[in-house]
């Protein structure tokens, strides 16, 4: 009986987590079934080759790319304090915190940037940059995040 209740509670908690979106939306939760990738027209092509760890050095261009796109939410110095940060229900990741980032593999970081937060089970606030940034640029951004956190994946 106790176990059943636990299950139920976990289920409810999961549901709440699942329906929470980015924009502090208490009313936006009316849809139970998320659209499929096909419905939204986003065909996700995962090329396993490109997901293999690839070392692309961080250049001035990498830093500028981070400043131009990522800093909107993650902050100029990667501390998760960009100008959008306080308007999001899920705070943007602080890229200087090693405690979390060392639990993420480079492939996970790459996927999060290329396909968006949802693709790696993270917040949907993080959009997909795969149509904007070249794969090598994304690889170099992963390296830059490793520089910011002074950490490597376990």
């Amino acid at each position: 009986m106790l176990i059943n209740r636990k299950f139920l509670l976990t289920g409810i908690a999961l549901l709440i987590i699942l329906v929470t979106a980015c924009g502090q939306s208490e009313q936006s939760t009316s849809i139970a079934k998320p659209p499929t990738q096909q419905e939204v027209g986003e065909v996700r092509e995962v090329n396993r080759q490109t997901l293999q760890p690839k070392i692309v050095t961080v250049t001035e261009e990498t830093r500028q790319t981070y400043k131009w796109y990522c800093s909107q939410c993650h902050g100029v110095k990667g501390k998760g304090d960009g100008i959008n940060a306080k308007f999001l229900t899920v705070p943007p990741r602080n890229h200087t915190k090693a405690a979390y980032l060392e639990t993420r593999t480079n492939e996970q970081l790459f996927e999060a940037i290329k396909f968006g937060g949802l693709s790696v089970g993270r917040a949907p606030c993080m959009p997909a940059w795969g149509h904007t940034l070249a794969e090598d640029t994304i690889h170099s951004l992963v390296r830059y995040i490793r520089e910011l956190c002074h950490c490597e994946a376990f």
Binding site: C22, S28, S30, I31, V40, G117, M126, P127
Partner: peptide, 21 residues
């Protein structure tokens, strides 16, 4: 449906203000 995509699929709401339901 599109509002859902605006927030979750494309993440527009992270940078753009809009109206919720």
């Amino acid at each position: 449906k599109i509002k859902y995509q605006f927030e979750r699929t494309f993440g527009c709401i992270s940078c753009h203000q809009s109206l919720n339901l």
